[in-house]
Simulated assay, not measured.
Amino acid sequence: MSRLLAVAILLLISSFGVRGEAAAQEAPPMLSQCQAIAQSIPQVWFASFGADQAVPATSEGGQVVITFLGHSTFLIETPGGVSIATDYNGWYGPPTPPTVVTMNKAHITHFTLTPDSAIAHVLRGWGDDGEPADHNLVVDDVFIRNVTTDIRAGGGMEHDANSIFIFEVAGLCIGHLGHLHHELDASHYAAIGRLDVLMVPVDGGLTMGADSMSRVVKQLRSSLILPMHRRGPPIDAFLALFDHGFDREIASDSSITGSLSNLPKRPLIYVLKGV
């Protein structure tokens, strides 16, 4: 079954009702409020919920704080007090262990085999059993899911060894591209859905070329774009790939606080301090 068809079936099933709890638990993918189906499939729209359906508090208001810690690690702090470290390798981390960490396999700078035992949820972006990683986790006010992509390995491509992690909280859809090695196809975009905030590697070739990465960014059309994983080319080389339809700003701080109500009106590439 193709990825696109599988996502379509899941979203159609969701119309019959799914219940979720605020406690940490594995939840079916149809809990997503950000997931969309490609426009090529008629009569299918963004997933939504009826008034009688219990869902995690991702639709509530509140502000989310995002802090760049280094390399491709961001700290996401939710209104409900959940802390999440992306591409966690144990080197870049907050002063206290986060609630959740996500990891990717491409390089040791994106994972650790010995995470702090105080971390409640360790989510690997790859599967160890030959199957793709499949995360659908509700932790208090955040819903976390993943979409797998491939990585270069041994002269070829290793399937499903990278994950794009998506965090749905306070009505926001936040996506981290991980160590993305190839452009996305229609099935990936359908599985990802809407992303209001996008964390994107801008190394210019260690992941993939700047032109290819810019096409992914333009296709996703997120309101707030946070560069990360900069190695080699200056940030200006990445910014130059975008026309007047994208705003740019170099921040004086490593953190940004945002909510669904104060997203930029036009896509903004916002370079946090330290990138």
Rank of each mutant, 00 (worst) to 15 (best):
2 S>K: 06
5 L>Y: 08
6 A>W: 03
8 A>I: 07
10 L>Y: 03
11 L>I: 01
17 G>R: 00
21 E>I: 05
23 A>Y: 12
28 P>N: 06
28 P>A: 06
29 P>W: 14
35 Q>M: 07
40 S>K: 14
41 I>K: 03
41 I>E: 05
44 V>A: 03
47 A>T: 05
48 S>G: 12
51 A>R: 07
62 G>K: 08
66 I>C: 05
71 H>T: 08
76 I>E: 09
77 E>Y: 04
83 S>Q: 13
84 I>G: 10
87 D>Q: 15
90 G>D: 07
99 T>S: 12
100 V>C: 06
117 S>P: 09
125 G>N: 12
125 G>C: 13
133 A>L: 09
137 L>Y: 00
138 V>R: 12
139 V>F: 02
144 I>A: 12
146 N>I: 02
146 N>H: 03
151 I>F: 13
155 G>V: 11
164 I>T: 13
164 I>P: 01
170 A>D: 13
173 C>K: 02
177 L>P: 04
186 A>D: 15
187 S>E: 13
198 L>T: 02
201 P>N: 14
202 V>E: 14
204 G>Y: 06
205 G>M: 02
207 T>K: 07
215 R>M: 09
222 S>Y: 02
224 L>R: 08
227 P>H: 04
237 A>G: 10
242 F>R: 07
243 D>I: 05
243 D>H: 11
244 H>E: 15
246 F>N: 12
253 D>R: 14
253 D>M: 03
258 G>F: 13
261 S>N: 15
263 L>N: 14
267 P>H: 03
274 G>Y: 05
